[in-house]
Nucleic acid binder design. Structure first.
Length: 869
RNA sequence: GCCCGCCUGGCGGAAUGGUAGACGCAGCGGACUUAAAAUCCGCAGUCGCAAGGCGUGCCGGUUCGAGUCCGGCGGCGGGCACCA
């Protein structure tokens, strides 16, 4: 029996596509075709591709191949997000240079990706660690600097004094550095920031226009940007301290000012520091707060605590009333002004705080239906709408809106506050104290300050001769690299030794892909042609930072003349994770995780360790991870089953936006289908290749209907990103081909043969975005000697008249319950359908002696008799 | 704590407000085979001999008709920088 020999066929077709240049496009095409830019998030070259990559790049490849068949000039590039910490970790742990480690990984992963048969334009490939890329990034930064989009600012960071490095929140575990175990201290560092907050309003407003983005991603970004309307209010200190006479707070609820019971400042607030300087106890409390991690988990469980400074502030409206000033661990220095006023009755956190420290609680918003005299707040703050009470000139106003407007007007007229719009978004700090990143191209001169590295010296390359044998940044330790003369005055000066956050690298790579060989940052004609990306595909984990930074950088590039568009990604699709069962032997501390290939599933339903026969506990399905060893290596799957099988299974299992579970059985099932379809095609190819018959018999007509319907349904499914449904429709077509194979043709042999060849040819085209090698293999056998390949064919068109059903089944309901079905030609007259429905014995029985109140009729769908009596 | 998403057979899932469970996986029965694999045929939500009930997390509503729309509740998952 002939088999689909993927081992030979897949490389052969890959070579054929490559030889024909099927997937290459020009930087500035002149073919007049509409453009379509498909991009998947480029990979970090960790060493091997994983199933998440296979899923990501398969999804993108389906889109790219489908759009190409629909007549678009498709740009589908690939590159490497090649700077980052793992390379430095490898250098420290295994004494291998980050560049060598990275380039070797790239070579390996490129080979693995190429085995997948992706329709990529490899001539556009680049790696961000290549000076040919990052030199342009340096130029971009200098342009941003000149355009006022960059600032130098002090900000608090987690500092590991042993590793001499800044730590992310997730690298701080119980207040200690993850690697060194040293107690982390908060440190104020001077850093470069991109002024993303200048674009906060625009980044928020433009979300509405991103119609082909998932709603939840837009929502997450909107929440992240966090626009709020409130007021700044200045409270006079009863007694000025260190010359400071007032404290400014930001609040979204100025309408509840009369419900104030305290004022609280962040531990980093100047007033807190002043208190710390005065009282040892305050200093101790502040120090304690600084040791507190800022990660979510810590904050979740953190007790709300405070320290009473003994200072008091005057209420802005109530003559003679004063309130205590506390330092509180839940007030953030980065948000608003770093100080709040507490209104316990209408804010849960403030209420918890007030109850803990026995502070006053006065309700000032009365919920509808409550009595003002009796209303009290117990342990549940009321944050809904209502009417203002206990509030002087605000009494009787609707809260929050009307009261907010009135109180802001009053604050402004008294000159002690004003209405403001506040943002949650903070500027983007881009400085990193690392070696393996893009050097920030500035020089610090004692006389001239910050001086840009001259364009003529770009790219400013990383020195190669670095050592990782001591803590800190190797760039900083390098004996000569940082010592230069100031380009402006010529005196001895020092290079910046910080490198860029790798998010900078990935915030403009999509633009560079349009003209990867350009001597400029980008070729303006190329980006004008190709940008924006029409379909971007990647993981939901990048929903906020990467996508928001890219949106900002696109705007910055627009401002500096590099781009004509502000939004980089017109369409976004976020895929789910790839998961797998986990396997474990032993329990507790003695337990060991096993790789899937180390276990065996027995027919009796038990799972055992392959080599020892030990019982294995099958764990819950979770994201593939090295620590759980529940990983499946794409390379070995492709070797065993072929790329098409891997692609097909990953598409068939479930909707692409959901998490999918990789199972051996599923992969096997997909493999069997490749063989079944190949066999059906081979049999059809052997049938007589005659002229189009004049007439077709029943079986042939039925197959042609399935063929043309499947063109409609697969196309629809692909357009809607419902790839699992597209797969199901192909299964239906293959089942119909199987039926036709078994049908006794008799006099209709010629028609049936013709219909089978047609069906198989269509099937090859319909699977081609998903299983491109098998598609070519089938097509070439159907058309021996032809030089046409599927990758160059136009997408098939359905003949609607052939696709139409000869009979439709119409449901007959009585009082909304299904009681029968009737089959009639589509488009039958209402009277005929109702007559047929009433003639059904079961329906007739139910209608007998009853009065028909109403007949609901939906053409080709349903009849519903509503009866009474 | 806040925000978001999801919940349909043994499993993954399908279903413009119109026959719930397409298609696949796993399963069961059969054919072929010395045997196995592969392949092919058939069965299959659930209760019931059947007629007929009951079924899309739970409760209620709108509708001739609800998996789908609305209100409430529950569970699971994800995000987060306590956002005042």
């Amino acid at each position: 029996m002939p088999r689909f020999d993927f081992i030979r066929a897949e490389p052969r077709w890959q070579a054929e596509w490559d030889a024909r240049g099927c997937f290459r496009v020009a930087d500035v095409p002149t073919d007049g075709k509409p453009k379509y830019y498909v991009l998947e998030m480029f990979p970090y070259p960790s060493g091997k591709i994983h199933m998440g990559h296979v899923r990501n790049y398969t999804l993108g490849d389906v889109v790219a191949r489908y759009k190409r068949a629909r007549g678009f000039a498709v740009m589908h590039p690939m590159g490497w997000d090649a700077f980052g910490l793992p390379a430095e970790n490898a250098a420290r742990e295994r004494n291998i240079h980050p560049a060598k480690w990275t380039w070797e990984n790239i070579a390996n992963m490129r080979g693995e990706l190429q085995r997948m048969g992706l329709s990529l334009d490899w001539t556009r490939e680049f790696a961000t660690c290549d000076p040919a890329y990052y030199g342009h990034q340096q130029k971009l930064f200098l342009d941003f600097l000149a355009a006022g989009l960059v600032a130098r600012r002090e900000s608090w960071v987690n500092w590991d004094p042993v590793d001499g490095t800044v730590l992310a929140n997730e690298q701080v575990i119980d207040g200690r550095g993850w690697r060194s175990g040293a107690l982390v201290e908060k440190k104020l560092l001077s850093q470069w920031v991109f002024k993303i907050t200048d674009y906060a309003q625009d980044l928020l407003a433009a979300l509405d226009g991103l119609e082909r983005w998932p709603e939840r991603v837009r929502l997450m970004q909107a929440n992240w940007i966090g626009r709020s309307e409130g007021a700044r209010v200045r409270f006079a200190l009863e007694t000025p301290v260190d010359g400071v006479a007032e404290v400014e707070v930001y609040t979204t609820r100025p309408d509840t000012l009369y419900g104030m019971s305290f004022l609280a400042v962040a531990p980093e607030h100047p007033l807190a520091e002043a208190a710390g300087a005065r009282h040892a106890a305050a200093a101790e409390f502040i120090a304690e707060c600084r040791r507190m991690g800022t990660s979510e988990a810590v904050i979740e469980t953190m007790e709300k605590r405070g320290f009473d400074t003994g200072l008091r502030v005057k209420h802005p409206f109530i003559e003679g009333a004063t309130f205590p000033v506390w330092i509180a661990n839940f007030v953030l220095m980065e948000y608003g002004t770093g100080a709040i006023f507490g209104c316990p009755a209408h804010d849960q956190r403030d209420l918890d705080f007030a109850r803990k420290y026995d502070l006053s609680v006065l309700p000032v918003v009365l919920p509808a239906g409550e009595d003002a005299a009796a209303f009290a707040v117990d342990n549940k703050a009321f944050d809904g709408t209502g009417v203002i009470i206990n509030s002087g000139f605000l009494d009787g106003l609707q809260a929050p809106d009307a009261a907010k407007r009135t109180v802001i007007a009053e604050l402004e007229s008294r000159g002690i506050g004003e209405g403001v719009v506040n943002w949650r978004l903070r500027d983007w700090g881009v400085s990193r104290q690392r070696y393996w990143g893009c050097p920030i191209p500035v020089i610090h001169c004692d006389d001239c300050g910050v001086v840009a590295v001259p364009d003529s010296e770009l790219p400013l390359k990383l020195p190669e001769d670095v050592t990782f044998d001591r803590p800190g940044n190797p760039l900083d330790h390098h004996p000569t690299w940082k010592h230069v003369n100031c380009p402006s005055c010529g005196k001895a000066a020092q290079r910046e030794t910080d490198t860029f956050d790798t998010f900078v690298d990935s915030s403009w790579y999509f633009a560079r892909f349009c003209s990867p060989g350009s001597a400029n940052v980008v070729d303006r004609a190329a980006v004008d042609h190709w940008m924006p990306v029409d379909q971007y595909i990647g993981g939901i984990e990048h929903a906020i930072l990467h996508l928001l930074y890219s949106r900002f950088v696109s705007r910055a590039m627009q401002k500096t003349g590099h781009l004509g568009t502000d939004e980089p990604f017109a369409g976004l699709f976020t895929q789910g994770m790839v998961t797998h069962e986990s396997y474990r032997v032993g329990t507790g501390g003695n337990g060991t995780w096993l790789y899937p290939e180390e276990i065996e599933k027995r027919a009796d339903g038990t799972t055992v360790r392959r080599d020892t026969g030990e019982a294995v506990t099958v764990g819950r399905v979770e994201a593939m991870s090295k620590s759980k060893r529940n990983t499946v290596d794409p390379g070995s799957i492709i070797s065993r089953f072929g790329a098409d099988t891997a692609r097909w299974f990953i598409l068939s299992d479930n909707p692409p936006e959901r998490d999918m579970e990789w199972t051996e059985a599923g992969a096997l099932g997909a493999y069997r289908f490749t063989q079944r379809l190949f066999r059906l095609a081979e049999n059809a190819a052997l049938a007589a290749d005659g002229a189009l018959p004049e007439t077709f018999g029943t079986a042939a007509r039925s197959l042609r209907r399935a063929t043309h319907r499947s063109i409609q349904t697969v196309t629809e499914a692909l357009e809607g990103f419902n790839f699992n449904v597209a797969v199901a429709r192909v299964y239906e077509l293959s089942n119909a081909i199987g039926e036709a194979e078994k049908a006794s043709a008799g006099a209709d042999a010629a028609g049936l043969d013709w219909a089978r060849r047609e069906a198989v040819g269509v099937a090859a085209q319909l699977i081609s975005p998903m299983m491109p090698h098998l598609a070519e293999e089938i097509y070439s056998r159907l058309h021996p000697g032809s030089s046409t390949i599927v990758a160059e064919l136009a997408w098939p068109e359905a003949d609607a008249s052939l696709a139409a059903a000869e009979l439709v089944t119409i449901a007959v309901q009585v009082l909304g319950k299904l009681r029968a079905t009737v089959s009639l030609p589509p488009g039958s007259a209402e009277a005929d359908v109702i007559a047929a429905a009433e003639a059904d014995p079961n329906v007739a029985r139910l209608l007998e002696g009853k009065r028909i109140v109403k007949r609901v009729y939906v053409p080709n769908r349903i009849v519903n008799f509503v009866i009474a009596g």
